[in-house]
Design a binder for these strands. Sequence first.
DNA 1: AATGAATGAGTCTTCATTCAT
DNA 2: GATGAATGAAGACTCATTCAT
Lengths: 209, 209, 209, 209
Amino acid sequence: MSVMTGGNRVSGGERGSGRRAELLSIAAEMFAVRGVAATTVREIADEAGILSGSLYHHFESKEAMVDEILRGYLSAQLERFRRVVEAGYEPYTTVGELIHESFAALHRHRWAMAILHNEAGRLAEFDRFGYIESANREFERIWVRVLRQGQRNGVFRAGLSPRLAHRFIRDSVSASVRWYNPSGRMSVRGIAEQYTRIFRDGMVAPGGE
Amino acid sequence: MSVMTGGNRVSGGERGSGRRAELLSIAAEMFAVRGVAATTVREIADEAGILSGSLYHHFESKEAMVDEILRGYLSAQLERFRRVVEAGYEPYTTVGELIHESFAALHRHRWAMAILHNEAGRLAEFDRFGYIESANREFERIWVRVLRQGQRNGVFRAGLSPRLAHRFIRDSVSASVRWYNPSGRMSVRGIAEQYTRIFRDGMVAPGGE
Amino acid sequence: MSVMTGGNRVSGGERGSGRRAELLSIAAEMFAVRGVAATTVREIADEAGILSGSLYHHFESKEAMVDEILRGYLSAQLERFRRVVEAGYEPYTTVGELIHESFAALHRHRWAMAILHNEAGRLAEFDRFGYIESANREFERIWVRVLRQGQRNGVFRAGLSPRLAHRFIRDSVSASVRWYNPSGRMSVRGIAEQYTRIFRDGMVAPGGE
Amino acid sequence: MSVMTGGNRVSGGERGSGRRAELLSIAAEMFAVRGVAATTVREIADEAGILSGSLYHHFESKEAMVDEILRGYLSAQLERFRRVVEAGYEPYTTVGELIHESFAALHRHRWAMAILHNEAGRLAEFDRFGYIESANREFERIWVRVLRQGQRNGVFRAGLSPRLAHRFIRDSVSASVRWYNPSGRMSVRGIAEQYTRIFRDGMVAPGGE
DNA sequence: AATGAATGAGTCTTCATTCAT
DNA sequence: GATGAATGAAGACTCATTCAT
């Protein structure tokens, strides 16, 4: 068990608040597209059709909005990763599943992923966002365990650093949020498959080199 | 010929004034570490031991500083990529060389790389920074050409999208600027080798699966 | 007769609604402790367990709450002062009684006294609170009359300005609201006695100087 | 020795800055007259003939302005109190001198005194203003020592609490800042003398009661 | 080359108050 | 009597930039 288990509780407890979720969704997209700092509270409010001060009826601060957005994504995604691991597949399969789950988030939590990818470094310095680092460590633990197990089994090439390999795939996947176009011709599933093949099997054709 | 041929005042750095280069180097690190928007002109000046107003004797604007930093990196790096291609190696070798060149920039242009990785999206919207997109397209052209050639030769696995593969490796490499620690135990060369093996040969051991 | 005869909704507190008095009491303490301006309507409401908007079912405005609190204290206290005077004691005794009455208010109207001491200057500028000045003038009239009478009788030292003496004691007493601690070991009665002795008889011991 | 000894160093070290002092003086009067919270940064700037943002070229924050104003007064006044004590007069005389020094500050530090009298309670809660409490404790120590010594000598009446007596005179003096009018007919010296007589000798005429 | 003072537009945030439900 | 959403005006503070000296 670890940090992000409670997950996504909305201050004041989840109460009704279609409005709250609506505002959050507007904000998430803007934060992702323009950047958190570059998105003004007024712009969010404008987009929502209210005055900027009114946002503070729903959220304590701009920071609190970011917080809520990120917590939601991280806790849900950790949950999914854990479930994959608990399913007990072979490492070879697990790696594929993890990559698929990562890309699946591109649908469900697109903006949160983008925000995280773009601003994690800056945010992580604030105590408030300490959970980001914790979550990242947990993700790493999961990946490294699987890769290492695969190496022990002889399925994965020895001599490669599992931590480095994890970073390799993690960075690729998370950066994809910048260019992925949901209405483009490449489906998330398609991208995930290609990435899995490259990562797991390499560019080189069997007997190719 | 292409975009980034002119400029390059930084690394080339004629234009008298070691002072200028010094200021630019201070700014580059700060832009990279804190973000361009989050770095104030005053902070740069403080770090340089002058008053913020005095910076305007050297540069037209904050934007101009960013511009100068990025141009320097992009033109130099494009130059290196072109040289690799012109050397006329086999695609298998060329891929390794490109990855090595990419990581080598981690030494020479660390801050510029970081700035570009972090803010390219935002900056590219301004006309002034149109050359960023141009340079990126040129990088892509080079990569895609090599990968496609390798596929035709049968060295690289068919059925993989070269553009996607390019993004895969590009994003991984460029994100590494965020965690790479020049004084850590992993050398740039070591990382480049591991990344090359994963990308080219995959995680799976020969006969592994 | 003078100013503060009407009003007094608070202590008298007909007007149905224990709720009203309860809210007023909550507000009074907060106004006294944090300052009127620094106490937000929302904080009062929070403390009362309702939403800020709901306060407006009971009071017209925040100002109206302050008004009601102060009127209650001033009219009651003026009444008591008048009664002391009407009792027709010697000036020497009357002074003691007035000081005692002043300190007695520390029990009954602690928060109102504090508010008045802290904010009278600011409030008095508003027409609405004109009665504060009127009440203060009435208090002064009473004090000055007694002191002057004592000087004529030869009981009180000549050559002292009654108005100045009044300010002296008034300011001391009213400032005591800031440090008086109802659960401390010094009783209100004890403080009043000491103050009376200092004011009436001075620090110097008989034959001391 | 105690807290407020360094005294009044202007951030950046006292450098020139007639402007700084000028702005501070404008602010001090406004803070005193309208209250710190009720005085807006813009009003101060307007009065100074600059834009509100420009104030931040000179001071870090509104709070910093208050801080500088109060430190200046407290350190100077403590110094004067210490000098009175070190002069080694009889307690009877010392009391008179302390009262005179207190009123003398009404000329030199009128606004600081007013701010302190009005807002000390609120300010003291902030760490930044911890020195206010320290200074107040030091003032009290000085007063209590003198009064107690006088009681031991038999000059001052026994049975009176020195701490209470200190509060009595302190509160009177400091509240006088609210009604003292420099252009009125009562001189500071005159008020000080009357207060000294009341406090030391009492209202009652010798053989009066 | 640099200082020091100032600008002006903009940022997040606060808060008394209103009002339909 | 109360809720919950919103208003609108204002407040402290930031910052790239300008410019006379």
